[in-house]
């Protein structure tokens, strides 16, 4: 069985990627399970999806805890949710990542698994975010060594059939290109035994607890600050103090209360919580807020 897990952000096409791959396997005659994992988080928030493919009916269900292949569509996830992204990685796990980092940097951060395969954003079209589903699905299809180009393209067309024709054509074109580019990795991901690894869970007898804690209640206010929604961001607003007139319109319009005012009266962005909507840049009357790519900003600050 192939066990493949995708990680990305809400709105980036991770679910579609898993569906394309699922369909491609299916067209090759495999039994398939593909599914997204939803949380309450929205666009920009870390999300995942998974695909299982086998020659016989699949009895496993739900999350994949020991993946043969992990796809990381957005490298910032390695900084913000590393443990989730790398959960269950073992010596046979292949990692595929779209990243501007060097191989040694990546190896240092990931530090486990069999191989890291990287595509640098620089070799992709500038607007590659629009095609992330096809890019990740086609690379993955090639890694299996089993999915043929025809099945892949059928998969892309099938899953994007509600999109406009131009977009489908652009997607199939990039899928073909990536599939070819990844030829040398054909078959790098291998099927593993379908037998699950059994670890005996330690069941407990849950005692009756005090009624005030045994209900989902919060007995104080403003606890959401612990929820660092800054991890959702792919671009960040940056305030240029020299241009800023301290009108604080950015503060007024920021939906997330993520802009504060410092002692000199300048707005300060709370990057732990800013989701990167960039309303502040849009409403700034003096053009004092610019947009920076999150990856670049992070590498500058790290």
């Amino acid at each position: 069985m192939f066990r493949i897990r995708f990680h990305g952000r809400g709105g980036e096409g991770i679910k579609t990627a898993s569906r394309i791959l699922g369909s491609s396997f299916f067209f090759e005659g495999f039994q398939v399970q593909d599914a997204p994992k939803y949380g309450a988080e929205r666009r920009g928030a870390p999300v995942s999806a998974y695909v299982r493919a086998d020659h016989k009916q699949i009895y496993e269900r739900g999350e994949i805890h020991k993946p043969d292949l992990i796809i990381i569509a957005d490298e910032t996830l390695l900084h913000v949710t590393r443990n989730t992204v790398l959960e269950g990685i073992y010596e046979n796990t292949v990692i595929f990542i779209i990243s501007a980092m060097s191989n040694s940097e990546l190896e240092e951060i990931i530090n486990c698994g069999k191989t890291i395969i990287k595509i640098a954003p620089a070799v992709l079209p500038e607007n590659y975010h629009r095609f992330l589903s096809s890019i990740t699905a086609s690379a993955t299809a090639r890694f299996t060594g089993i999915i043929q180009i025809d099945s892949l393209i059928r998969g892309v067309e099938e899953e994007l059939k509600s999109a406009k024709n131009d977009l489908i054509l652009e997607n199939t074109a990039i899928a073909k290109k990536i599939f070819n580019d990844m030829t040398s990795y054909s078959g790098i991901v291998t099927e593993t035994d379908g037998t699950p690894v059994i670890t005996e869970p330690q069941l407990i007898d849950l005692p009756l607890h005090n009624s005030s804690i045994a209900t989902p209640a919060i007995r104080t206010g403003s606890t959401s600050v612990k929820n660092q929604t800054g991890s959702w961001r792919t671009s960040r607003p940056v305030i240029l103090q020299e241009k800023c007139s301290r009108c604080m319109l950015c503060n007024v319009y920021c939906p997330d209360s993520a802009i504060t005012k410092n002692e000199e009266g300048f707005p300060v962005i709370d990057y732990n919580h800013c989701k990167g909507c960039l309303i502040c840049r849009e409403v700034c009357p003096s053009g004092a807020i610019t947009q920076e790519d999150e990856k670049t900003s992070r590498s500058k600050t790290v």
Binding site: G39, A40, L206, P207, A214, T215, R219, T220
Partner: peptide, 27 residues
């Protein structure tokens, strides 16, 4: 003394815990 009540929980573990607590209280 602000309070938030009737909240949504995410994940089956939390949900199982609160549901089973109501069961234990009922018993």
């Amino acid at each position: 003394a602000p309070q938030a009540r009737g909240l949504i929980v995410l994940g089956g573990s939390q949900y199982s815990y609160f549901r089973y607590q109501a069961h234990l209280a009922n018993l």
